[in-house]
Design a protein around this nucleic acid. Structure first.
Lengths: 153, 153
DNA sequence: AGCACTTGCTTGACACGTCACGGAAAACCC
DNA sequence: GGGTTTTCCGTGACGTGTCAAGCAAGTGCT
């Protein structure tokens, strides 16, 4: 395909694209700051704790957790080591499969999640959902699904 | 404000929110892979080179570049050191202000940008803009502006 | 001139993510 | 059962981002 088939972005497209890139960096930063104010948790910690809290008995196989979060295993492994060091989770050997491990929410982990969740939801609502109309929500969902579908390798 | 004032996300909101988080991680990853295939450049390198190429004579004061990119100075400083090590840019002392420095695009930097740009635009179009209607573009722009306005501390 | 303050940029320490690799246990196949 | 392959997870090295601190040069006040 020659370059002439793909013209550079016009002014409006460029505006949207840079806006997207900007929101994509600033929103997580703002959420992270909000979360850090009342909880010692990062977005990644929070997401991990949410997934565990949704699981039966607050525990999951590491590979299942990694798949659910769409994380690489090594990333999760590093992260769990750090979270484990802070007492938010514990690792347990898996009896049925000698290779495998479980991660389980500790009481401290559940407490941290419970105390951080309301504030986090509040800020997500305030920054992202506030004023979002039903038709906008649908359109945005549709757009993101389209993009995600094309991104999947 | 009590917790009852901010209900947890309902099912549709949660779908949208997780979709947003997911696209926000996968799209940059896909763009990065595409860029790396034909250029040795990261998204950050690319963005930096674009900014410099748009400046008169391909050079900018470091603080001006940092402000334009909305980067912290230390981040840019680290990044320029690495890019400079790869020969993509060079730093020059500023004569009018002994504290200041200029960064300038090298021939290699401009060549890398020129060779990477068409493919990058193509993939941005293919993944993000493809099939985006005019009214969708406006709605999305409007939404992102709203979010960004609220994120600004 | 002298002194504090500000500005422009760098540096070092640390947290995080990716990649390539490794070991151990299970599964498969003959 | 023995050997190969696959799966589960951890580790080390490296690039990158943030934060706090620092240095050097300009600015302003007296």
């Amino acid at each position: 395909m020659s370059d002439t088939d793909t013209p550079w972005l016009d002014e409006q497209e460029m505006t949207l694209w840079r806006l997207w890139l900007r929101v994509q960096t600033e929103l997580p930063a703002a959420l992270g700051r909000g979360l850090a104010q009342d909880s010692e948790l990062s977005m990644q910690d929070f997401e991990t704790l949410v997934r565990l809290s949704e699981a039966p008995e607050g525990r999951l196989r590491i590979s299942a957790l990694a798949e659910g979060m769409h994380w690489e295993r090594s990333r999760l492994s590093h992260h769990l080591r750090r979270m484990s060091g802070r007492g938010l989770v514990v690792k347990q050997d898996c009896l049925e499969d000698g290779r495998g491990s479980f991660v389980e929410l500790t009481d401290a982990g559940r407490a941290a999640l419970d105390s951080a969740a309301p504030g986090h939801v509040r800020i997500v609502r305030a920054l992202f959902f506030e004023g979002l109309q039903e038709d906008e929500r649908q359109a945005l969902t549709h757009f993101l699904e389209r993009v995600l579908g094309r991104v999947q390798t």
